[in-house]
């Protein structure tokens, strides 16, 4: 598999140091947590993304993110990359993140673009979940 060095590094670092790369979970019942889970085991990838937000004025800002991903190396790398992009962003800014951004940063091979699509879907769902609680 011809992965870019970025995918390989991201994957390996996440594996070596999961806490530093935001692997983990929040309590999904908390009011300030939004959870998104997309994909299916039968398809070979499932991403779970959780955002923890705080309100500042009428803005909601993503304070912290946790994720867990079952999938190939690029799915794991895509999740870890996305998480870093999200921290500190407002929800409106987070909604602007597109799969293309991830695919570009990680230089994903064409056959792996669906990993970045999945990542985009997971953030959309997490935001929806959070907003439904407000």
């Amino acid at each position: 598999m011809a992965y870019s060095k970025k995918v390989v590094d991201k994957f390996e670092n996440t594996l070596k140091n999961p806490e530093k790369f935001n692997v983990g979970r929040f309590d999904p019942k908390d009011g300030d947590v939004g959870t998104g889970m997309v994909g299916a085991p039968a398809c070979g990838d499932v991403m779970k993304l959780q955002i923890k937000c705080k309100q500042e004025g009428n803005q909601h800002i993503i304070e912290d993110v946790k994720f867990k991903t079952y999938g190939c190396g690029s799915a794991i790398a895509s999740s870890a990359e996305l998480v870093e992009m999200l921290i500190g962003k407002t929800l409106d800014e987070a909604k602007e993140i597109k799969n293309k951004d991830l695919a570009e940063v990680l230089e994903l091979p064409p056959i792996k673009i669906h990993c970045s699509v999945l990542a985009e879907d997971s953030i959309k769902q997490a935001i929806e979940d959070y907003e439904s609680k407000q």
């Binding site: 997309v38 398809c43 499932v46 991903t69 794991i76």
Partner: peptide, 30 residues
């Protein structure tokens, strides 16, 4: 070692440990 680390990263493993039967979950296949 690697199996343990990857399971730490796996939402499916987490659900399995929580006692959730994965066959009963409605997945969002893409």
């Amino acid at each position: 070692n690697v199996v343990e680390r990857l399971r730490e990263l796996s939402p499916l493993w987490e659900m399995h440990l929580d006692g959730i039967d994965l066959d009963t979950v409605e997945w969002q296949a893409h």
